[in-house]
Design a protein around this nucleic acid. Structure first.
Lengths: 203, 203
DNA sequence: TTATTAAAATGAACACTGTTTAGTAAATTT
DNA sequence: AAATTTACTAAACAGTGTTCATTTTAATAA
């Protein structure tokens, strides 16, 4: 009588297969440049089949959104080894940048792309995103226990830090640094991050 | 014998007509949600006609990109009345935010949208963009004459300031503040901008 | 004024897109 | 073996950016 169970497993397996193919394609080409037909071709099913497992392209977006955050959190795993909270915060910024330029398509889906962000706050995907943000707030709060960021609201400061990092990364990713000469352009991010570190340490 | 001249004028006029219709549509619906056919319908010409005046949709993007920066610079016009450079810098930030949320489609095209940014650096459009950035660097430099930002490279700091503003604005615009409760969400931008002002003044 | 030439505008098509639906084939239950 | 449920797909719909052969319009020459 395990038929229903097996069917359910098959269903999840199919969902996984679709997601894996979609994932690979998206990482290679970006969300907008991958069509349902592309995914269908990759898994050797008809396009209509995709719609038996996902409501629409946006639902695939959500799934990959969660996947991206999962990888992001894994990427941040190294932080656990750093005791000093301020050093950990700085390393966090460095990893943030590294992740951005290593996996631009992830970053895009996580923070830049327009998409109906009205997704379920109890979903697995959402929790991965929340966890990432929580880690930032926690490390900032922890810094305050080490005499950093005196008289600053940790939530507000966390958002400000995130904004700064996101600002630098997204401007670079979206090619808005062409106002700078080729030579200084490549150093701009490094220099401003260095200055940012300085500012934070003096805060 | 002014036939050629008139024809050239007609040509420019038609370009303007197309651009004006495109502009209105883009402001209302955003770049991606406006099709060549929409524009064609608005000006009561066939879609193919658009292509006699613009190479492709991207060329229209460039034109609007320039237009957006022009309006941005106009919007920043008030700054001229502010003598104190630091106050001017702060006002600049306030106006930046106001512009962002008043004209989200402009902001999108200026700083967020993916597009081949390999446009002509001598074009009118580009100069408008450069002028905006130049104004920021100038005001930061001027601040240094008033004992602000000691021992800081003004170019790097300018980029850092821009990044912070862009980070806050673009995260808000792209609905990435849903991690915060409804109540605090609306205040988040204000609070973090306030903190940012504080940090800058202590720099 | 008419015929010729040049310019401007377009209808129709191409190759795509996301998505829906009606109908087929296969697996499961009766 | 027949009936029913499930899984899948071909074909279509309405849209996209873009191109091109053809027609309409305007300017020039006879």
């Amino acid at each position: 009588m395990g038929v229903k169970e097996r069917k359910e497993r098959d269903r999840q397996e199919m969902r996984e297969t679709i997601l894996q193919s979609a994932h690979q394609l998206f990482v290679d080409k970006g969300f907008d440049d991958v069509s349902i037909r592309n995914i269908a071709e990759a898994i050797e099913y008809s396009p209509a089949t995709i719609y038996l497992y996902f409501k629409d392209k946006n639902e695939i977006f959500y799934a990959l959104h969660g996947e991206a955050f999962k990888r992001f959190n894994e990427f941040m795993g190294v932080l656990a080894t750093i005791k000093d909270p301020f050093k950990r915060l700085i390393k966090m910024g460095e990893l943030y940048m590294e992740f951005t330029f290593k996996f631009p398509q992830y970053y895009d889906i996580m923070f830049i792309m327009q998409a109906p962000m009205d997704c379920d706050k109890n979903s697995e995907e959402w929790k991965e995103g929340e966890s990432a943000h929580c880690q930032l707030e926690n490390v900032v709060k922890e810094c305050q226990g080490h005499n950093y960021f005196k008289n600053k609201d940790y939530k507000t400061l966390s958002f400000l830090i995130w904004s700064t990092m996101h600002g630098m990364c997204s401007l670079a990713l979206r090619d808005r640094l062409k106002i700078y000469e080729e030579a200084e352009r490549s150093k701009m991010i490094d220099k401003s991050f260095k200055m940012f570190k300085q500012i934070l340490s003096d805060l």
